[in-house]
Amino acid sequence: MDEGGNKSILSPRIRHCIYRTLVNLERSAECGLVSVSRCCHTYKASDGEEIFDGIEVRIVDENHRDVPRGTSGEICVRSPTVYANCYVDNEEASKAVIDNAGWYCTGDIGVIDADGRLAISGRKDDMIKRATVKIFPVDIEPILKQHSAIKDVVVIGVPDDRLGEEICACVILDDASSLADVKSWCKEQFSVGPDGLSIAPVLYVQFSQFPTTASGKTDKRLVKQAALDYLKV
């Protein structure tokens, strides 16, 4: 929102309310609005977001049990808007994703910190399980996109006999670059994970273009299938 360069037009309280309402809202078609972050140029997704009043959020493990604050798990939401949004077209399908207590499991992985702020790590379906460590493409893809040769990238997990899964980068490169250049650069960019291994991709598959959905978005499911077929795993 443009205040015309005159900060005295709006009081700090009003500015706070406007920014809090309009900036970085987290929502889904099923749940409606869930959380919001304040307007701040230093904001990072890991900082977490304030959960709206009237929205209940819990973090659960793979057995649907609550985990302690600060522990990562699947985000579940309960609110009147869950029913309003989910039951519009297909009540039977909606009931399949909402438990008897009214909790909707979003498929997103996140954490609620000690201050009650919600931070989203990524999609459950996209999570890479390397031995005992959970790795999310959203932690890797932005780093890869910093390389000038990489026009687009999708990070996936591929089967690995020793670790369960390994990290694979599916990339579209400009015509003047090679995978060898990218691999060499990546070795210097990525930190070591909790398992003592780098989170740099181990495998790379080069694409000329990514398959897309009907809406024009990259179809990550088809990208992964094409990569698995190419790698023969």
Rank of each mutant, 00 (worst) to 15 (best):
D53S: 12
V202D: 15
A131P: 00
S72H: 02
I55K: 04
G107T: 08
V138Y: 02
G196E: 03
I51S: 02
Y87F: 15
D126K: 07
M127L: 08
D160P: 15
D181I: 12
Y87S: 00
P201D: 09
S198D: 13
D115F: 15
G70C: 07
R15M: 14
R162T: 15
V223Q: 06
G102R: 01
T213V: 06
K224S: 03
V138A: 09
E49Q: 15
E91A: 05
E74L: 03
V205Y: 08
V97G: 00
L10G: 02
D126P: 05
V192Y: 06
E49H: 14
K145Y: 07
L144I: 14
K151R: 14
A93G: 07
C31E: 10
N100Q: 08
V182D: 08
S198G: 15
Y43W: 14
V154F: 11
V171R: 05
S94Q: 02
E92M: 04
T106C: 06
I172V: 15
A114D: 11
S184H: 10
L179V: 14
L173S: 11
R69C: 11
V202T: 15
D181K: 08
C40V: 00
K124H: 07
A45D: 13
K183Q: 15
E26N: 12
Q146C: 11
F207H: 05
A227Y: 04
V153S: 00
E188I: 02
L228K: 09
Y204R: 06
E49G: 09
S35G: 12
V36R: 15
I135D: 04
A149T: 13
T106R: 03
I135P: 01
D229P: 01
S28I: 09
Y19L: 04
L163R: 06
K134D: 06
K187S: 10
P142M: 02
V233G: 02
Q146R: 13
P201Y: 11
R221V: 12
L228E: 13
G32Y: 04
A114G: 02
R15P: 09
V67A: 07
I75H: 01
R117N: 14
L203T: 09
G216T: 02
I128K: 00
S177Y: 05
A227E: 01
Q146K: 13
P142R: 00
D47K: 02
G102Q: 00
S148L: 10
D108A: 00
T218W: 06
L231V: 06
T71S: 12
F52I: 14
A131E: 10
D47C: 13
D108K: 08
L22G: 04
Q225M: 05
V192W: 03
K95F: 11
G70N: 06
D161P: 12
G196L: 05
D174K: 11
L179E: 13
D99P: 10
V57Y: 02
K7V: 08
C39R: 03
G102S: 02
T212L: 11
G110Q: 03
T81M: 13
V36F: 14
V111P: 03
I98W: 03
